[in-house]
Measured scan of single mutants.
Amino acid sequence: MEVRTIKVFTTVDNINLHTQVVDMSMTYGQQFGPTYLDGADVTKIKPHNSHEGKTFYVLPNDDTLRVEAFEYYHTTDPSFLGRYMSALNHTKKWKYPQVNGLTSIKWADNNCYLATALLTLQQIELKFNPPALQDAYYRARAGEAANFCALILAYCNKTVGELGDVRETMSYLFQHANLDSCKRVLNVVCKTCGQQQTTLKGVEAVMYMGTLSYEQFKKGVQIPCTCGKQATKYLVQQESPFVMMSAPPAQYELKHGTFTCASEYTGNYQCGHYKHITSKETLYCIDGALLTKSSEYKGPITDVFYKENSYTTTIK
């Protein structure tokens, strides 16, 4: 009895394709271990004539594949690729409408935090270190965002349907971005203890939790000093293409032309909904596939993004 075979390709990165001759009487799992086709788990399936010449994702289970996976995804987590594939199996079914010149995501599976993050990423200057993220990001900007969303979920250790947080998501993504040249110098002034300067680099240099107003941050924000008295913390120097200011959701007025974009969060910790506000020729609110415009805006804002380049204080 002759062994019926077909020729397929296996890959971990969709760049390096490895030619395989597979036995049609055995499952993919018996031949390769966990195997995925377009995100779908085909591990328990036997090869079919229609699979001839198709590319299958496999887990990096030998040295060659491990090197290829690390170079593309910059992670050695053995569960990463499987999590990416199972997320992709959902995100490829989502709709990605162009809204006001940006790629958004039609609401499904509690994905409003991903839509808000995706919209924000198209408006701030950011370059990702893992080629996987950078490639998928370019495709997302062009309207094909399924891979990018699935990668975000995998890097953030999230599953489809789980509630997510924009600030946490951005923080994970910033860790995989090139923020080497970003720098922030802060000064804390206390009447009792004097003053202390701190220099922050990388992710810490672009994120701040405690106030939404970048102007206020430049002037000074009140913080408790270690001595128990009130101290003032203010920005001395900022070198970065953008800054992200966050605070627990509270009524906040966004003035046209003073910011790049913002995240609105309605609801409580267990259950809520994100919308995205962007400042173009007027203010726009993007909620999944829905767009509304207004000249002014007041609502429960939790993150505001500002364009920056270089700032030095005039406070002496």
Rank of each mutant, 00 (worst) to 15 (best):
F148D: 00
N16S: 10
T55V: 12
T103F: 09
T43F: 11
D287P: 03
Y155G: 01
P60A: 12
K229F: 08
D287L: 00
N14K: 11
A231D: 01
N157W: 05
N49I: 14
T43G: 14
S104W: 01
T27H: 10
S246V: 02
S263M: 08
C182A: 11
C261T: 02
T232W: 10
D38E: 14
G202P: 01
F242I: 00
C227P: 01
H273R: 00
S50L: 12
L65S: 11
L153A: 04
M24K: 10
N100I: 03
E52T: 10
V21R: 12
T103A: 05
V99W: 11
S263Q: 04
T11M: 06
T302E: 01
Y208V: 15
N100C: 11
L88V: 06
Q20I: 09
I301H: 00
C261K: 00
S25K: 08
K255R: 12
L186Y: 14
S213C: 09
K106F: 06
V8R: 04
Y208K: 00
E144V: 07
E204G: 09
E71H: 10
K219S: 11
G272N: 01
Q122A: 02
F242L: 03
Y73R: 03
K7G: 14
S171K: 12
F259E: 01
I6Q: 10
W107M: 01
N89L: 12
Q270R: 08
Y297Q: 00
Y137I: 11
H51W: 06
T55R: 11
H276K: 00
V166Y: 06
Y137D: 03
C156M: 14
T76G: 14
L151K: 03
K307I: 11
T232S: 07
V203W: 14
M24N: 11
S171G: 11
C271D: 07
A177N: 03
A154Q: 04
G39R: 06
K293N: 10
C182Q: 00
G53E: 14
P78L: 08
M170R: 03
L186T: 14
E71G: 06
R184M: 03
V203P: 12
I223A: 12
G143H: 04
G101E: 04
G164A: 05
H90T: 12
E253N: 11
E239I: 12
P131W: 04
Y252M: 14
D62A: 08
T282I: 09
V206S: 01
K201Y: 13
K127E: 12
C182G: 05
F70I: 09
T282N: 10
Q30I: 12
S86Y: 09
A289G: 12
K201Q: 10
V3R: 13
